[in-house]
Design a protein around this nucleic acid. Structure first.
Length: 576
RNA sequence: GGCGCGGUAGCUCAGUUGGUUAGAGCGAUCGACUCAUAAUCGAUAGGUCGGGAGUUCAAGUCUCCCCCACGCCA
């Protein structure tokens, strides 16, 4: 462990993606990818990291997707979890565990929390009217009821709101209501009982807690504050549903009289999976101790917990989930920093899962390696405002940064050396003024890069990293070993040795962004991965004369205009 | 409709608590170099900081009004 950087413990979670289908690039860049960047960086600095993610599996959309696929919902979810896990792996997402909100661990924990909340008087029972569809054999959530809007006569208004005139509706307002699932009009209103979490009773606690988070992004606190203070303030929320697929409502280990056949609502059990996932991780790894990550009375008081999510998820993470934890009265670790992202747009519009618009994760990996996507998405991530994906911007960014600046640097250095000195780093010469100046510049830049990564300034980190790559080309251009070698072979050998050291430095510090290419750079030198270059001067003398190397062919191939045009038209339509 | 985030060079974006001639990358133009993935390096051009009013010795940066885009509304 380098001096001045005592080891820290970091718990990192990414918003958990919903199970029904493959996520698009907007989902990826909004939480999983930046979370992975941060996790990889902290590990590279020698910190202890537990990085968790999972699939969010409960709720009506999962049931419907399973029905559409003609499979039992449990089987469907198991399959889709495997698919998502595989794709996550393809993108190099370095989760310590990729869990499932349907896990036994989450069942137990969710029921436990509900019991604690009930004991604390924070759960109340509410009787309400719900629409039941006889044809579908199930209760219908408001948005799954369609009918004619009483306000504007639009005939596809949903039970919660009319998309045409935006009027908020109650399902019973609709004229000629029908099931959006089957189209059946055989509907009836039934009386059903549900549990509500009394978030309103926790409003002041939540308010004080949010106020204590002075270093959170404005986007985050403003959303939380709005929900806390808007109108009548924070509203109680139903935490149960009349569904089959979900976590059965139980009060801890005991039955909950009157709640038979009901399950917890997905928004209640999904965030609890963050905790349960640590339990899954522990069980999958020979009973590792997971409570030291989550219980402040069992060692988690020195853990720094960071959550990553898209802005649409902020209310759940700043209010609902904290309400669950605070209300339990137990010493669970609460989030320290919450990093939220805006949306990535696709060619001027929205990425859309339901409409199949944009590029989906599996398709992205079919056409290009993960590093291309990782680099472009992260260096252009929607950090302070929405940002746009277009094929032209993507092609431009990838070709320039990865192929021309970095890839070509590696190429020119290794090929020059091979032709003049052979496939061994040459000896001779010693670093002079130009090298000292370069080391000084890079020391400053690498330090700044580290500080930006630490602060999760994603775009700025990428900018600084790029500037570090550029510095290598600047050096080479100024030193001009191809000219030096004609007059002073030892001097040229020294210059090219410096260049090899730069390659190794780049491999190390670039790995959070482009892990695969970093590995290739590292292994082309036949050396083990280096420690973080705390001291750039020593890092830049770690590759020594006599070290053999191999020329890595085309670290990054360029995206041609034909490719771009091809993909542009291929992804313009909707996904089949 | 309410609320939220934005509107800075052709494009994508930086601009800390208001303070000297408003910055970067890409693109464009010119030049250098020739080791390299027709790559690289340097230089130049380009903006009345959405519009208007106000506070101030001083405003892209604060206040008010307006316009535009996007998003959210359990």
């Amino acid at each position: 462990m380098p001096k001045g950087h005592p080891m820290q413990r970091h718990l990192i979670t990414s918003a958990i993606p919903y199970i029904n289908g493959i996520k698009h690039l907007g989902n990826l860049v909004g939480s999983q990818l930046p979370a992975d960047l941060y996790a990889r960086y902290l590990r590279a600095r020698g910190h202890e990291v537990l990085f968790l993610c999972a699939t969010d599996e409960h709720g009506t959309p999962a049931e419907l997707a399973a029905a559409k696929a003609g499979k039992p919902v449990a089987e469907y979810c198991a399959e889709m979890h495997a698919v998502q896990a595989d794709i996550a792996k393809g993108f190099g997402l370095s989760f310590d565990h990729f869990g499932r909100s349907s896990s036994p661990q989450n069942h137990t924990l969710t029921q436990h929390f509900a019991g604690r909340l009930a004991d604390a008087g924070l759960i109340r029972e509410v009787s309400e009217q719900q629409v039941y569809s006889n044809a579908d054999g199930r209760y219908l959530p408001d948005r799954y009821i369609e009918g004619t809007c009483p306000n504007c006569a639009y005939d596809k208004a949903r039970g919660d709101q009319c998309e045409n005139c935006t009027k908020q509706l109650d399902p019973t307002d609709l004229i000629n209501p029908r099931s959006a699932i089957s189209g059946s009009t055989d509907l009836e209103v039934r009386e059903t009982k549900h549990l509500y979490l009394r978030q309103s009773a926790l409003k002041d606690d939540l308010d004080a807690w949010i106020d204590s988070k002075t270093d959170w992004p404005i986007l985050t606190t403003s959303i939380a504050k709005k929900w806390l203070h808007d109108g009548d303030g924070l509203q109680d929320r139903g935490i149960t549903r009349d569904l089959d697929w979900g976590i059965p409502v139980r009060r801890g280990n005991e039955d909950w009289p009157g709640m038979e056949g009901k399950v917890f609502y997905v928004w209640f059990d999904a965030p609890i999976e963050y905790i349960a996932c640590a339990g899954e991780w522990a069980d999958a790894n020979g009973d590792a101790d997971w409570e030291r990550w989550w219980r402040t009375d069992k060692g988690a008081d020195d853990v720094r917990y960071t959550q990553f999510m898209g802005k649409d998820n902020v209310p759940f993470h700043t209010l609902s989930f904290p309400a669950t934890i605070l209300g339990s009265g137990e010493p669970w670790k609460m989030v320290d920093h919450l990093k939220s992202f805006n949306y990535l747009t696709y060619d001027g519009g929205q990425f859309s899962t339901s409409q199949g618009r944009g590029v989906f994760m599996d398709q992205a990996l079919e056409i290009l390696p993960a590093d291309y996507w990782r680099w472009w998405l992260l260096s252009n991530c929607p950090e302070t405002s929405d940002s746009e994906f277009t094929w032209e911007l993507f092609q431009q960014g990838v070709n320039k940064d990865l192929a021309d600046v970095l890839g070509n640097f590696v190429s020119r250095v290794t090929k020059f050396c091979r032709s003049k000195f052979g496939e061994t780093v040459p000896s001779g010469g010693t670093y002079g003024d130009r090298e000292t100046a370069l080391i000084e510049e890079l020391q400053a830049r690498v330090t700044r890069y580290g500080a930006l990564m630490e602060a999760m300034e994603v775009r700025k980190s990428a900018q600084e990293l790029r500037a570090i790559w550029v510095a290598g080309n600047e050096y080479l251009q100024a030193a001009a070993p191809w000219a030096t070698i004609k007059v002073d072979e030892a001097q040229a050998a020294m210059q090219i040795r410096m260049a090899f050291n730069l390659i190794r430095l780049y491999a190390t510090i670039s790995s959070p962004f482009i892990p695969t290419a970093s590995d290739r750079m590292q292994s082309s030198l036949g050396m083990e991965s280096a420690d973080w270059p705390e001291d750039v001067a020593s890092a830049l003398s770690s590759v020594q004369a006599g070290q053999t190397f191999a020329v890595p062919e085309n670290l990054f191939a360029k995206i041609s205009d034909d490719d771009r045009a091809d993909w542009q038209s291929r992804f313009a339509g909707t996904r089949g």
